[in-house]
Amino acid sequence: MFKKFDYYAPKTLAELFELTNENNEAQILAGGTDLLLKLREKTTPHKMLIDIKKLDNFRGIETKDGYLRMGALTTIREIQASKIIREKYTALYDAAKSFGCLEIRNRATIGGNIVHASPGAEFGTPLFVLAAEAEVIGPDGTRVIPIHEFWQDVYQVDLKDNEVLAAIRLPYYEKMVSRYHRLSRVKGMDLAIVGVSVLALDPANIEKREVKIAMGAVARIPFRNKEVETMLSGVKITNELLVSVKEKLSDSIAPRSSSLRAKPAYKKAMVGNLTEQALLELGLLEEGE
């Protein structure tokens, strides 16, 4: 049972901003798979929900000049089904595939996942390595913010009171591969206890190759280890290098010990393994060494 609230479903942006202007406490409702859960608890004072699903502005996956624009209301299921995402932004596809379950994926949106900004959010690490940008819209116009700046802290993103997240922009590179892997406690539906995204630009050209790694559910926000990225970029990735990479990754994180889902030592051990798995699948590990 939900606690009482009011509900509005504006049909135009103007209506939306009118509502958000008048109601500082109002909450944006997208898929509701995070928000509605909170509304079951006693501690939530929200009195008004503004459903943005009647607005067309936030839908669809389309290529614009030089980037892919994914509306904030894009559902996880749509991401899973998108050919271009599967082929070009594979880490996002991986994240969509391991996300919740089919019924949840049918409702949950990418925008909600980001704005909720939980430490283990599935799309955190893929968007960090993909160098995504958040397109934010408010009464005064549109702002575009790099994802790592937008994603400020646990449950905290850079949205002013009457702004909403309109879309995610993904830069396009000719030669780009990426994977996301996560661990969970059971084989069935579960949240990630730790997740890793690995991306490589120009993967076949060892000298020019750029590797990026981000880890999820290990810190307050998705965490990119630039030192390790440098170690892996522009060189052959041998097993020897991998050993020190794993060690570095493990040393660079200090997950909180109060997590119910896994203890720090396990997460520290697993980030390396997940990284290795992704590197292997991306064909970036040298064989036979």
Binding site: Y7, A9, G32, T33, L36, L37, D51, K53, L102, E103, I104, N106, R107
Partner: peptide, 11 residues
């Protein structure tokens, strides 16, 4: 398919 416990009637 959806989980009807997480959909509002008004939606």
């Amino acid at each position: 398919p959806v989980r009807s416990c997480l959909v509002l009637a008004v939606e």
